[in-house]
Nucleic acid binder design. Structure first.
Lengths: 237, 237
DNA sequence: CGATTCGTTGACGAGGGTCAATGCACGTGG
DNA sequence: CCACGTGCATTGACCCTCGTCAACGAATCG
């Protein structure tokens, strides 16, 4: 089931069949989550770690102002909250931005794996470090780039990550965000997000049909965004 | 020597004397780093992990535009780059923003500790998770708050972290940033940073004397910033 | 078939960027 | 001790990106 996870981890090191089986066996159950529903809510420590199998999700936080800010997008193969194995408190929430399918893995199991299976533990650790690197890039994005650049950069990132997860065919992949959500992530209003997207479209860089996104000029899109993929640590070693 | 590190880790769990000794013994040497000098540069994988003992440092990245963006501030007790134990590539640089003292720990030693000493490994893991949580808050900061709020929020954070590290007396602590650096971190120009700082000063919230910063109204500063310290995971368990 | 959600467009204003000059505290060398 | 240079903070004038408010379309769904 979690092919996307294995594909991602192969960047770090390939798992043996028995390791894969162990991971699959640790899945307690799989659930479908409706679009817009929370997978985990801020506050308490859940008893499961969640692995996204299908669809997109986002980390987000509610603000005093009533607005919310999106801090990350998760795609198939991403673990939502290895955090909770060590932190006693979720400091943000995660919700599905499209219909999603989620695997529930008991926290206990993850702890056991972390303790007993060095190789898998390292892979999880590695995945967390990459997540952190992504977070840093988002920070640079918000802090130092214009609206158009920010959006272009996010598109570049999600395209590469989708490729790694095996859900990007040619130059087209699923990008199931409303302009409002895209704005919430990029620190922009929905209106300005709309205009910026339009610029990218008018320049012939991207095309959108419903929630499918096609990249028409990959080289120029990267260049405009200032995107370089090193931070995703793709090179298999 | 690394009292700040131990103080910080106590939030997670107290170390035994032998564990402390092991960490101290793993230090190969200690070096002074001049203000503005790089501790590690983007690119290759160094053979040491760096522990900050005195002074502040920052993670930063150079941009195509020639500008740079600061993605984190490090204070005594912070490990700069546990990353390099698993990632083969530093995707950003770290430099001293004030004169600093840095302990060099061979990567090999850290790997050994991660493999053999579960408790210490967990503590390192925990520290990384907290760093990630901090990063997420910075993201919210840049994405959803005004200049004054951003700066106020950073001040709140650094005050709490300084307390934990044991380098904040009463309401005063060392805040060795130029307005330019502060701006580079908050996504603002130096000029606007100046005006925003002035507002905080005029409102009687903070006072600055050289690089000492005094917080005059802690409650209101937090309120303006929208600061809540949960994300720092302070509660000792 | 409305009802709702999401995208599109316009008008206007404000927060923050840019450019540039000035002041102030140093540290250094003569 | 003064002269000078340098790094940093301060302030003003002006402009542009992006936010706000609001209305209208288009698509989807029960």
């Amino acid at each position: 089931m979690p092919e996307a996870l294995f594909r991602k981890f192969e960047r770090f090191h390939a798992f043996t069949e028995s390791e894969k089986e162990m991971l699959i066996d640790s899945i307690e159950r799989v659930e479908k989550i409706g679009k817009g529903r929370d997978i985990i809510s801020e506050g308490r420590n859940p008893e499961h770690v969640h692995l996204l199998l299908e669809g997109w999700a986002c980390r987000y936080q509610l603000l005093d102002s009533g607005k919310q800010h999106i801090m990350a997008f998760l795609i198939p193969g991403d673990l939502c909250d290895v955090h909770v194995t060590l932190l006693d408190y979720m400091d943000h929430s995660i919700r599905a931005v499209s219909p999603a399918k989620v695997a529930y893995i008991p926290t206990r199991q993850i702890k056991e794996i972390l303790g007993c299976h060095q190789r898998i533990a390292n892979a999880l650790f590695w995945a967390m470090l990459v997540d952190e690197a992504i977070l840093r890039q988002w920070l640079v994005n918000l802090g130092s780039r214009s609206a158009v650049q920010r959006i272009a950069h996010l598109i570049c990132e999600m395209r590469v990550r989708s490729s790694v997860a095996g859900i990007c065919k040619e130059n087209t992949f699923t990008f199931p965000l409303t302009q409002e959500e895209l704005g919430e992530a990029m620190g922009l209003t929905q209106v300005h997000t709309n205009r910026s997207l339009r610029k990218l479209r008018d320049e012939g860089l991207i095309r959108r049909d419903r929630y499918e996104l096609e990249i028409c000029d990959w080289a120029r899109l990267q260049q405009i965004a200032g995107f370089r993929d090193e931070y995703l640590h793709l090179k298999a070693r």
